[in-house]
Design a protein around this nucleic acid. Structure first.
Lengths: 236, 236
DNA sequence: ATGTATTTTAACTGTCCGATTAAATTAAAC
DNA sequence: GTTTAATTTAATCGGACAGTTAAAATACAT
């Protein structure tokens, strides 16, 4: 039940059983990606307004469909919000877990995570603000996010991912190449430096009176500087 | 108009002019701190639910007053939200600007800012999530936040605060004691490391399956480790 | 051609909720 | 004791909005 068949019982009315109609082309009528378009619209609106502030009509308009279809696919606003959040969460920390658990030196991992996060967040700049606001007001979504990001319960995260990282750090310490540090701190520090500037983007832009272009430049430069900054902090 | 008389035209009905009645004791009737209690209640509810998700009735209950009084003091929900946000914003980055602009070595400033932020956020752990969500969905609040935090427009921030920091960094570089770095990055990196763990708190707790107690311990340890981590990153 | 799933149109229901108002009550100030 | 402000009670208005439903339209599949 951790997997992604969140589509349990949509399309209720006028549709006793879902015999499925997408056979040859994989498309039903207009396109068949209607579900995706609705989720795209929902994502856009939820990010812009927040869950409570979003209006079903605005989502429908954004998706280029009518309000009734929203309820046809997703029973109600809450289920739509959950589906949209889950999809957003999947894209939030793309392959961070993979990278950390992978082979490769610490410096490699640091570099790859910074690349991953900054590239991704540049394309979805307001995602962190949305996710953070959402889990702040709906703590129950945190568990949902964990499932979406990892596909595993937290049980395997500790031993598996962090264990490997811990051993790598201990090896570095023993070799005199780095300072001792909890693996949790390692990850959180790194993600803080990557994600926070996007979460705080509106404030940063206001305080430093930056337009969007200059913020882009700021991130580009940050992309260059962060690896050295972080690796520098690891030295003993 | 930057100052705190945001109380312009409250108490409208049945009160043609505000001759003021708080003379001797400073308290009018019950207490006179009713405004504060309402703001406290509003703060609690807005943080818990977000602006759009908050209900006036819940705020009234939380404040121990009735709904009508909310409108008596603040015209409508929007004005109440603004007032609550502004007060919260004032406490968000307490004296960070002061510290940065003050005399003292860089290391002193780093240490004092970490103390300031972590102490404050420990007492108001969900403040960052609220603020971030708020400005994400209401970009116009960013300007409000700047005014609340600094009391100055962004014009004086650049030259004044960051100028001093820049000179300090340049001196350090020239002395071979630190790597070159934009003062903006200096501040943003430091605040990222301080604030993000609180903003992402529900996620961190879920992923690492931490209860509140262990999160507290985590922050305590972080308080000890952060200064060395950050100062280490500054070395050439 | 017929059946079935998808999508639209349109109207409607019920409710939640922000806002307004009037009137009564309380207490402080003078 | 009169005035004036603060606060409560209660009732109501009106709009916004989630959700429902029926019916028609569209197109695909067999």
């Amino acid at each position: 039940m951790t997997q992604g068949h969140h589509n349990d019982d949509r399309r209720r009315a006028k549709r006793p059983r879902l015999t499925g109609q997408r056979l040859k082309t994989g498309k039903t009528k207009k396109d068949g990606d209607t579900e995706r378009r609705i989720l795209d619209g929902a994502h856009a609106v939820f990010v812009r307004r927040g869950t409570a502030g979003a209006r079903m009509q605005e989502i429908a308009t954004e998706a280029g469909v009518n309000q009734a279809l929203l309820h046809y696919y997703f029973r109600n606003k809450e289920q739509l919000a959950q589906a949209a959040f889950e999809r957003a969460a999947k894209g939030f920390m793309p392959a961070v877990v993979q990278v950390i658990a992978s082979a490769g030196t610490l410096e490699d991992k640091v570099r790859r995570i910074i690349d991953l996060e900054l590239d991704h967040l540049t394309r979805a700049p307001y995602l962190p603000g949305y996710i953070i606001g959402e889990v702040t007001h709906h703590p129950e979504r945190a568990a949902q996010l964990v499932a979406a990001v990892t596909g595993l319960g937290p049980r395997e995260l500790g031993p598996r991912v962090l264990g490997r990282l811990r051993r790598q750090i201990e090896a570095g310490v023993k070799a005199g190449a780095m300072r001792p540090m909890a693996p949790e701190s390692f990850v959180i520090n790194l993600l803080s430096l990557c994600i926070f500037p996007f979460a705080a983007r509106p404030m940063i832009q206001a305080v430093l009176s930056m337009d969007d272009r200059r913020f882009g430049q700021f991130i580009t430069r940050r992309h260059q500087d962060l690896p050295a900054f972080f690796m520098g902090a690891l030295r003993p």
